[in-house]
Design a protein around this nucleic acid. Sequence first.
DNA 1: GTCGAATCAATTTC
DNA 2: CGAAATTGATTCGA
Length: 658
Amino acid sequence: MEGNGGNYTDKTRVLDIKPLRTLRPVFPSGNQAPPFVCAPPFGPFPPGFSSFYPFSSSQASQHTPDLNQAQYPQQHQQPQNASEPSLVTPLRSFRSPDASNGNTELEGSTVKRKIPKRRPIARPENMNFESGINVAERENGNRELVVSVLMRFDALRRRFAQLEDAKEAVSGIIKRPDLKAGSTCMGRGVRTNTKKRPGIVAGVEIGDVFFFRFEMCLVGLHSPSMAGIDYLVVKGETEEEPIATSIVSSGYYDNDEGNPDVLIYTGQGGNADKDKQSSDQKLERGNLALEKSLRRNSAVRVIRGLKEASHNAKIYIYDGLYEIKESWVEKGKSGHNTFKYKLVRAPGQPPAFATWTAIQKWKTGLPSRQGLILPDMTSGVESIPVSLVNEVDTDNGPAYFTYSTTVKYSESFKLTQPSFGCDCANSCKPGNLDCHCIRKNGGDFPFTGNGVLVSRKPMIYECSPSCPCSTCKNKVTQMGVKVRLEVFKTANRGWGLRSWDAIRAGSFICIYAGEATDKSKVQQTMADDDYTFDTTHVYNPFKWNYEPGLADEDASEEMSEESEIPLPLIISAKNVGNIARFMNHSCSPNVFWQPVTYENNSQLFVHVAFFAIAHIPPMTELTYDYGVSRPSRTENDNPLYGKKKCFCGSAYCRGSFG
DNA sequence: GTCGAATCAATTTC
DNA sequence: CGAAATTGATTCGA
């Protein structure tokens, strides 16, 4: 464990952990479980199953990596050639917020069973919200602050989106929860790196992804909420002059010509407006700043705006520092003069935008991704293929298992009590409190319009396949995997899972598939293999939901975020499972699990669904907190001491898990 | 349903 | 202080 990994002695952050069990009777106790339903290794497979066996695949031999090239470069090693940069290193390592800032919420118990902690109604006059970020931290940030600010912004944005969705839609009115959340954070001092400077911004790492312009404002990467060029006025030899600090390329003008290290950037201004004709651009403001930066050889931060065709989402990737090599004037599409700047990426920086461009090529399949063993290890069972890749050694794939997208429950998990769906026609409308499914969620629609989870809850109630709402948005985790994933061989932790797509915070990733059993009925040894999910573990608490003090409505009731799994549920994915079985543990995870339930064939089951904690850049390993098993701890031990040695590498590594 | 174009009302900074 | 900069959700049209 690197750096200050030994700091995990601050017991105030981890103590007071209580059992996850509650007494809510969702599962009946009762009958002895029959044998599991299990597909034979070579079929025929019931729906949702396929064989997974890489060695028998004809594809496997085609794509077996060249052993001489199996040693892939590590971070900062030179790319093998200009157009094929090293892509094996995650764009950045992720760290979760640190309690030392005083603004994240690791205080209190893990499992708050009886919550309603009365808070004053959040009216403007009695709002005493503290950002927890002091003046110095606001001017100069660090990684923890940046991560914390982004988490708080997005939690608030999701909440505003949820509230807007619940209102009656007014035609012509455009909802902008991003602006509302951004403005709130600005006003309450939830921001950092306000001191503008060219070059590196403390706490923002190359490869970081953003989904909103406001996110980059709040962490000081790029302050204008709209303009593409950010600049700073400095004292020159004779007079003051502007120099550029950062630019955002919208992806509209830019012609990369295949080289991700070069950017041709168009100056600002001259655009046609409602009551304005397009005109020549002037050498002022941002254009002048870029010109001065060119003269001074002052490097500029570049943020690449990208349209992900598959996602229908625009993302921004921070691509590090570029040098302005030349500038010229060119006739634009409107026939008027525009300024053009040629920027070249400073050498020696880890790949970011280059990773994204390479992934776009992989998606076409030509040429196939290096180290590819199987293009789709699910054999079409998932609607999106899952690649199997090894770039580090000669291992040809994980041991055989049966791929299933679903959980197989033993008989003892069947619910005897009938479950109620809703009777909404077509789709359930957020804000419609007549909808029984929405009522079960406390009156809030659990997801925003684009399927992002708004907040963690003890349980999420989705509409069921038997509800009449066929096009309902409250069926996120039932619809299968939506991100393009790959299973890859890690350097020291076996196989792992990562995504080709950038993943937005709150996005559903996958469920934990496998064979579910009631832990109390199983031998302890069986629950101990490497492919077991166990709800009875002790989990490190964390805060993900919006802060009531930040929202401008009555948010008097703080909601529990921690799970209430009614029975000790364990899911074994040793023989049957999905991609979730490859997700490794981390003490600073970027994914969390959330219990979800919906009725199926008149039975109610609990599903373990995984969601992104923060925005996750492409090719970053997906990890969640495995927790530690209860029996392993003794009174004198750290309560989060586990049986397995941890190699997560996080600065806050607890040293063990499981 | 889907894909691009057009539309609309936003916010911070200089 | 007001103009400048362009976004992102939605609607519209082929």
